[in-house]
């Protein structure tokens, strides 16, 4: 156990040289390499993070885009549905209006046909009744009936109200008497006398035969007329026939 001081100093120098050598060949290069690697790794990580960030951004963008597309699609669909509903409503209304128009047209036509039919019927019925009545009256017409007619006419003349009487009396025109049958002289004088009594003295009376007056007699002076004949009854009959048809028509309309 001796210390050789020469060896000691040599070993100190050796150790210092070793320190320098290892520093030069081991520590510095290895540490530098590790630092570079760390730098590279951290760069890579940063890059990856940036890429991830970018990818996330893009994903978010796409998501947003897709959402907006979805929304747009929904909007379009809703729009289309609304359009379709409106169109449907419009078409239904059109169809309803068309049906109503057709129906109205048909009703008008039906009414026109009905009215025409009724008019024809009225006309035909009146004509038939007139023909029957005319035939019956013609068959019945004799002196007694004519006398009764004249009598009735005179009664009516007598029962005229003041206004009508006045109107008949005021004109200077002659009084014209039209009758369906031939008046004999006795009846004529009775009539003339009655006219003179009721309307005015000295008035001229003209007699005329008029077959269209159905079994009656008519007085005309100026624009006024007074008379009695079966045609009045016929008109009344016609009115009755019409009213007989009308209720049936109104009840059918209600249905």
């Amino acid at each position: 156990m001796t210390i050789d001081w020469v060896t000691v100093s040599a070993q100190i120098v050796n150790f210092l040289i070793l320190v320098w050598l290892l520093k030069r060949f081991l520590y510095q290069p290895v540490i530098r390499a590790m630092d570079r690697r760390e730098q590279r790794v951290s760069n890579r990580l940063n890059e990856a993070q940036e890429r991830e960030q970018a990818a996330e951004d893009r994903a978010r963008q796409f998501e947003k885009k897709s959402e907006s597309l979805d929304r747009r699609r929904d909007e379009i669909l809703n729009q289309a549905r609304e359009d379709a509903a409106r169109e449907k409503k419009q078409m239904l209304e059109d169809a309803r209006a068309e049906v109503a128009g057709t129906r109205r047209h048909w009703q008008q036509q039906a009414n026109a046909e009905k009215e025409e039919f009724l008019a024809n019927l009225r006309h035909a019925a009146a004509e038939a009744i007139q023909a029957i009545a005319r035939k019956g009256l013609r068959d019945l017409a004799d002196a007694e009936l004519e006398e009764r007619i004249v009598h009735t006419f005179i009664e009516r003349l007598k029962s005229l109200d003041a206004d009508s009487r006045k109107a008949l009396a005021q004109t200077a025109e002659p009084v014209r008497i039209a009758s369906a049958f031939e008046l004999d002289s006795g009846l004529r004088s009775r009539l003339t006398r009655a006219i003179h009594e009721q309307l005015a003295e000295q008035v001229e009376v003209e007699y005329r035969r008029s077959p269209e007056l159905l079994g009656g007699i008519q007085l005309a002076r100026g624009g006024r007329r007074l008379g009695w004949n079966l045609a009045d009854y016929m008109e009344e009959l016609e009115e009755r026939v019409e009213t007989a048809f009308s209720p049936a028509e109104s009840t059918r309309e209600e249905d």
Partner: peptide
């Protein structure tokens, strides 16, 4: 060697 350890 004690010389080496002494040097160190």
């Amino acid at each position: 060697s004690l010389s080496t350890t002494t040097a160190l």
